[in-house]
Nucleic acid binder design. Structure first.
Lengths: 121, 121
DNA sequence: TAAACATATGAATATATATTCATATGTTTA
DNA sequence: TAAACATATGAATATATATTCATATGTTTA
């Protein structure tokens, strides 16, 4: 009841119906929005950012990354899975060692833009 | 004890000490990493992405956005605060209405790169 | 000035997620 | 083949966060 009221109230006092209609049509498909949010979500964590930054310099095995970041092997492995899921990293097995690398160069571009924004205030 | 053991074990079996040392030096400052992760974190949510996308098309007031996304005014207001905190949006008051706009063009660039990645598989 | 209104915000709640712990899996080597 | 090892992963836990609800704040208008 409270919810209904406030929505009704809001709808009647909307300032620009025309803008809302137009923007609604231009809004990207729900699935793309979802994928995009998953991608940025995966970038929104210091541990994963550090992993990606490290991999942008060199391929590294799980144990290397754990040592670099002073974190447990398990924690790194879990985070690498997140990065794999959004295709930010890929890996090659060499014996029992698994080497991770960046999947493509988009990451570096996104990084660059992000740093631009952060530095620019 | 378990933790100590596993870290010690890992350190002795690290594959590339040289790489680790070098990458450690090249790692961006902790504060930049933090800011960057906060920026991407703010992009890692569908509601906020939709808000940003909408604002890239037109300035809109809070009530417009709530109507567009079919969400409560409060929810939108809370999310706008997150976006303000990372300087992705700014606002102008006109009477009792508050119009929000994108703070700069970086967002659009980051968006574009993100969509490239998502579409490219 | 009082009422109407747009927005902001604190507290509560539900949900998502990062890390740990224990252990499974698969490969190499003695 | 058994032991050593690198990595992956499920369950548990602690913490972060999105939304709701109630209400405060500040502006306009009757």
């Amino acid at each position: 009841m409270n919810k209904q009221n406030s929505i009704a109230k809001c709808e009647t006092t909307v300032i620009h119906d025309d803008v809302i209609d137009r923007v609604k049509e231009e809004m990207p498909a729900a699935e793309q929005m979802y994928d995009l949010s998953e991608l940025f979500k995966s970038l929104g964590d210091q541990t994963r950012l550090k992993i990606l930054f490290a991999l942008s310099k060199n391929r590294m095995c799980v144990c290397d990354i754990a040592a670099l970041l002073d974190m447990s092997q398990s924690a790194i492995s879990h985070q690498l899975r997140v990065l794999r899921n959004v295709r930010l990293v890929k890996f090659q097995k060499e014996g029992k060692v698994v080497y991770y690398t960046l999947d493509d160069d988009h990451v570096n571009e996104i990084f660059k833009q992000g740093l631009n924004h952060v530095r620019h205030r």
